[in-house]
Amino acid sequence: MNTIWTTIAIISLIGLVLALVLYLVAEKFKVVEDPRIDDVEKVMPGANCGGCGFAGCRAFAEAAVKAPNLDNNFCPVGGNETMAKVAAILGYEVKEKAPMVAVVRCNGSCANRPTVNTYGGFASCRVKATLYSGDTGCAFGCLGCGDCVAACQFGALSMDPETGLPVVDETKCTACGACTKACPKGLIELRAKGPRGMRVWVDCRNKDKGPAAKKACAAACIGCGICAKTCRHEAITVADNIAYIDYNKCKLCRECIAMCPTGAIHESGFPKPLDKEATKARILERQKKEREAAAAAAKTTEEKKDA
């Protein structure tokens, strides 16, 4: 019996002494930290993806607390909701940002873009891109080894075995931008998600001249500029033989899709499918009328001059 008591006494004593030591050490090495950092970190998504440009959620929280406003700190994963919470904690105002989503800008599926050689190295887009232009005739398109899929921490990307191209799962994509950095061809762009997920984009980045681009891929943008001429909102520009749709200007009329000769422009999220033929006919009719009106106007001015 005595032994038991002695044991308990000794162990308790050791415990007490150690607790005291721990307490003293903790006091001595106490780091005074802004408690708001912890608060901010708590409302962060905790993915530590680095999409905000900081090393992780903690680093973001530290930076946000230090910053004079939240203009340069935005968590793409948490979005406006998280940022509102952060702003509430820190007493800042936060501007609403349009939600973004990753968009793969290549439509060089196996059917559209035949392979011209066989790649036999390590299955990594970066390795492949370092070695050569790729196993198809297009030097700008998707290499198909899935570096973007590996880079995505949210499981939002997957390779479609049929097309050989990555597919974005909109519901999972947080627009952290990891895939845009992983793609050696720079094919993935963060674009505005659009109202109810409706958006239109050019599904190609081939800078070759029309015939060469077309030869490599049936669905290539050939830089013909028809879309730019059709667009009534000045949303489309053509540079380096490639069209680009500015998502801030696009009014989602889908006329460019109807007019594109190669089908390089893609849409998503629209409730009704586009009747290409009818739209095209309507546009051509409108353009004809415009031309006639212009000619008539020119005529009248000429007549005026004559008179």
């Binding site: 190295g121 390590f122 990594s124 970066r126 390795v127 370092t130």
Partner: peptide, 12 residues
């Protein structure tokens, strides 16, 4: 193992 393929990236 594709050692060199991968190391080349690390080297870069």
């Amino acid at each position: 193992i594709p050692l060199l393929d991968i190391i080349r990236l690390g080297k870069a």
